[in-house]
Design a protein around this nucleic acid. Sequence first.
DNA 1: TGCCGTCCCATGCTATCCCAAGAATGCCCA
DNA 2: TGGGCATTCTTGGGATAGCATGGGACGGCA
Lengths: 165, 165
Amino acid sequence: MAVFLSTYVNKVDRKGRVSIPAQFRQSLAKTSAPSTVYLWPSLNHQALEGADQDYLDVLSESLESPDLDADERDMIETFIFGKLIPVSSDAEGRIVLPKELAEFAGISEEAAFIGRRKTFQIWEPDALKAHEAALREQVVRKDISLSQIVAKASRAAAGRSGEGA
Amino acid sequence: MAVFLSTYVNKVDRKGRVSIPAQFRQSLAKTSAPSTVYLWPSLNHQALEGADQDYLDVLSESLESPDLDADERDMIETFIFGKLIPVSSDAEGRIVLPKELAEFAGISEEAAFIGRRKTFQIWEPDALKAHEAALREQVVRKDISLSQIVAKASRAAAGRSGEGA
DNA sequence: TGCCGTCCCATGCTATCCCAAGAATGCCCA
DNA sequence: TGGGCATTCTTGGGATAGCATGGGACGGCA
């Protein structure tokens, strides 16, 4: 599965095309469908989410889980798979941003790609800035630090493996 | 089995014909009966459900399962198989929406196809919007996020494989 | 014989492919 | 260490093919 990192801002031409950042493409090259990415509107933000075929396969499989309640399943099928648009890149590594998705995210001139490991997001650049500012404020307010989070996670992992043994 | 994704809104002409979205057709092309789709009224919504031959075969087979209680079996046989209408597409990839189904879903001018992976639904566009708005409210209210659901599902899957071992 | 459903043909629009060039980056050599 | 060269990436525009949509004609059933 591809790994997406960093932030890139690329231009959207008048046909709605935008280059996938080269780094993302290199990552996609290793997946089972290198020239196809899947886009859908974010559930929680005015932004687009993107992923590769392999991620979608995992997601699809997780929907078969009997532990999901009917509401959640219906929601995912409607809002993710129902909105999901497979876009294939051209020879230059560009994709066409579907109109309804571009509108949803308020993207017209430029698009900011931000890697989120297994998925990435596409934002209108100013909206992304605002979002980041808001998030940073929370970091300060809640006094969050990276080392804290890592420590917490590894403590929890140790606990689980202890139970299992 | 065909996979249906995305949402498409197509026009219904005065003969009741509507184009199957090209993406759906490409998906159907790989199935055992590419020019036939099966339609039936949704159990839960004022909309139509659709699927390909292969899905119906699987569904039919699952009815043979001894785990199914008699009520459920009766319900499916009555409301799915009892209402099922096979429609075949013409050379242009259009189907004729059976009158009673179009009326049931309130479809007249336009029809919205929404992919739901193994099946799809056909809605009157405004009804679909309303349905989505209602669902979205639930997303906000329950504070659901995609990564949350994926995590939950994979945790559950891990739990099951653990039990099995 | 009239009506309805199916088939065939025509057309405007949209998306896809192909070709091309400027800009930025990294590498190599002096 | 600095400048020049080559490669890659991003961006732009034109041509082509596919798709959605509409109307007419033929054949079957009532």
